[in-house]
Every structure is written in C-alpha cells, then in structure tokens.
Design a protein around this nucleic acid. Structure first.
Length: 208
DNA sequence: ACATTAAGTGATT
DNA sequence: AATCACTTAATGT
C-alpha cells in the first residue's frame, strides 16, 4: 500500500510534504513500535497492517486498549508528542506493518496550514476516545464473557477474517485475565455454537 | 519416540 | 473470577 490511497483524504500539497518529510518504515510482526516511557519523535500513519495499543502496569501486565488500522494514526502520540512527554502506552506490530513516520515538528505547522490534516487528527482522536470510553464501560460494567465477545469481534474486524490466530493465553493477557478462565468461557461459546475452537485458532460463527 | 506447548478440569480461595 | 495442581491432546524435533 502507498500514499496514493490517501488521495481522497489529503490535498496534493500535503501529500507532497508527507513524501518529503515522512520516513517510510517497515516493521515485522511483534516489533515494538513504541514502549512505555519512551518519548515520541515521530507520528506514525499506518499504511498497512495492524498495530495493537495496550496499557502496561507496573508489573508488566498488559491490557488491550485498541487496534490501529491502515489510514489511521495513534491518538496517544498526537497528545503526548506535543509536550514531549513519555508514552503511557505500548504499541506493538500485530502483523507486518508499514507506516509513514511524520516528524513531530511538522505537526504544528500542518495543523495550521492544512485543514485536511487538522480534521484527520481530530477524527482519529475522536474515534479513539470513543473506543476508550467503550473499553472503560466494559471493564466497569460488563462481565468478562461480554468483554471476550467484544474482543473477538474487534480482532476479527481488525484483521478482516473470522478465523482468528490466537492462543487462549494470549487472549488472557490482552484481557488481563487468566488462561483457564478464557478457556472455560470459550468453551461455553463453542457449546452455544458461536465459535469453533482449534489449537491456536478460533473460528467465529455468524451468530456471534 | 520424546519434549514442548496448548488446552481441559477440579478444587480452593 | 483467579490461582494451583494436574491431566490430556496436539505439535515439533
């Protein structure tokens, strides 16, 4: 995928500037793009692949926040790059990822000069903020089984497939739960004909 | 065939 | 819902 796919979003002048100032980067699956406490030097704009953004507590436990898909950027980076504050989150390449790194200095300038950049930034912040609210709702009010269903749907949407390649323990880590609990919940879902379980794979059925 | 890793189960808190 | 201890099943070498 390339910058051309942004034609409908940004004006040509901005696209030119992105070509000049942006650094094309290619990450392998599992690469850590940004870890906790690191300071941000670039704004990533995802060209292809999916990035997983998660919160990490003092013991190293992770909690999934959201996925960043192509044509999106990470809302957290916008807010903390401007003040050069350390990252509160960890961003990992969920699969092989290509992204365009925009130097933070360009941010301010583009915000003023290019309305499309401005609305792009606002759009991604609003989208992420809404997702965060949903996640908070889930943790505060929903049971783990509902969180799990949401997680599977989310994952399926992010990777555009109903066959999910994940072990039970990976899921448990993302949801800050334990493997046994996830296994038991998944088994219930399987009995309800909502998924089919394999080793390291979960097939989502329509009824989910 | 053996070791390793994923998943299933029951008991305990 | 989490943790432990243990079993069973699948997969890699």
């Amino acid at each position: 995928m390339s910058l051309e796919s942004f034609n409908s979003i940004f004006e040509k002048e901005l696209l030119e500037e992105m070509k000049v100032h942006g650094k094309f980067m290619s990450l392998k699956q599992g690469d850590i793009i940004l870890d906790v406490d690191e300071t941000i030097r670039i704004i990533p704009v995802i060209l292809s692949g999916t990035v997983k953004v998660s919160r990490v507590d003092e013991h190293g436990n992770e909690l999934l926040l959201y996925y960043v898909s192509p044509h999106e950027s990470c809302a957290m980076t916008f807010t903390c790059c401007m003040q050069q504050v350390g990252s509160e989150i960890r961003a990992v390449a969920e699969d092989d990822v290509e992204l365009l790194g925009i130097p933070t200095e360009r941010m301010e300038q583009w915000m003023r000069v290019y309305p499309t950049w401005n609305s792009f930034v606002m759009k991604t912040i609003r989208a992420r903020f809404n997702e965060l609210l949903k996640t908070i709702d889930q943790i505060a009010f929903q049971k783990l089984d509902e969180r799990l269903i949401h997680y599977l749907k989310d994952k399926s949407a992010a990777t555009n497939t109903t066959l999910i390649n994940l072990s039970h323990s990976k899921i448990a880590i993302d949801l800050a739960s334990s493997r046994e609990v996830i296994s038991r919940l998944l088994k219930k879902l399987e009995q309800d004909k909502k998924v089919i379980l394999y080793r390291n794979q979960i097939k989502l059925l329509r009824e989910l």
